[in-house]
Design a protein around this nucleic acid. Structure first.
Lengths: 190, 190
DNA sequence: AGTCAGTTGCACACTGGTGTGCAATCTAGG
DNA sequence: CCTAGATTGCACACCAGTGTGCAACTGACT
């Protein structure tokens, strides 16, 4: 019998993928994907909402960690962003939830959990707008979200089209952020 | 008693909004929004799937019309795109369905209906890539979808933030397409 | 006045998902 | 070896949404 912590973690882990793919996936879907019985999931998460919120919280924590890590290095904001994309790319699907869950029925409850991430993202963008490396065509908060979403849209097509790579995602999201083409491609190569 | 055509049209019309907002909205939701009883909706569309497909078809037809219209004028591809955004902006929410429905359970059936739009979009982008006005950082098909999605993401924030306008959406989507900042802003002003 | 299509209101069967209860079964750790 | 916590396997009640059947009503058009 696996330790409780392990099981709970695996459920959370798997749910990050499953619900990231389809925000309306059932508890049964999550359970079988986690190699566990439905009843067990309810043992750890009394209701579907609890699971979803726990999920949002975990994703938020992980992402904030990554954002803090890349922001710790002293460099231009556009370079920080490129590094951020490189960090999330290998496990891009894990962090898709943030986009998927917002559009779910729990939208309201989720927002609070994700607010810190939104802020961190916006802070980075704002820094770039202040030092002139990023554009001002949209408010920092919106621009951050948009660039984030762009990465995942590209990541998705990369699943079926192998000419699409991290570099594509980096370049494209940098363009959204208002970085000049030449500079964007240079950063994407690194 | 309204003519059948009128009722059917209104249901379709309203459903374009309702399902655009929430792809999982119920038949009852659509019915009440259309000022009609649930049973009536089933009179026109035997199943939910029929309604959704009819919807996709209508949206596809309308969009193809607009795309053909803006493409008829002889000018650079980036200018055509800017004009396209200007055309769909006033009723942006109507055309959100294309994005919302793809992610729904009917995804498969929908794709066929939307393929022509995807093609038209890709054709425009490809033309721009050939004459050098648009970037080559992504395949034309992907880039078209992405720029399209960008318009709606921006449109959504415009609902609550009135500093965000058509110009913002035009500029941003042009940046995604790889248009230089100066040129993008110039086109957005027109 | 009579007809006919469209609409309404209500009842119904069915499905799939949620959440709970409880007894039986594991299995790691003392 | 024994126990306590975790997991399993059913059972169940419940709800929301889908799709159908049918009789009654409405109003336009002849």
């Amino acid at each position: 019998m696996p330790s409780p912590r392990t099981t709970r973690t695996r459920i959370l882990d798997v749910a990050l993928d499953v619900l990231g793919q389809d925000p309306d996936a059932s508890m049964a879907d999550v359970a079988t994907a986690a190699g566990v019985v439905r009843r067990t999931v309810y043992g750890h998460f009394p209701s579907r909402t609890d699971l979803v919120l726990a999920l949002a919280e975990q994703a938020a924590t992980e992402l904030q960690g990554i954002l803090a890590e890349v922001a710790a290095v002293d460099r231009a904001a556009d370079a920080t962003w490129a590094d951020f994309v490189a960090h999330i790319w290998p496990v891009a699907r894990r962090y898709r939830v943030l986009l998927a869950l917002r559009r779910s029925e729990h939208g309201a409850g989720i927002h609070a959990l994700l607010a810190p991430v939104d802020q961190a993202l916006a802070d980075l963008v704002r820094r770039g707008q202040d030092d002139g490396t990023l554009g001002r065509h949209l408010p920092a908060l919106v621009l951050g979200q948009l660039a984030y979403a762009t990465v995942f849209t590209v990541a998705e097509t990369a699943l079926t089209d192998d000419t699409v790579t991290v570099a594509s995602a980096t370049t494209t999201s940098l363009l959204v952020l208002g970085v000049p083409t030449a500079r964007a491609e240079e950063l994407a190569r690194a």
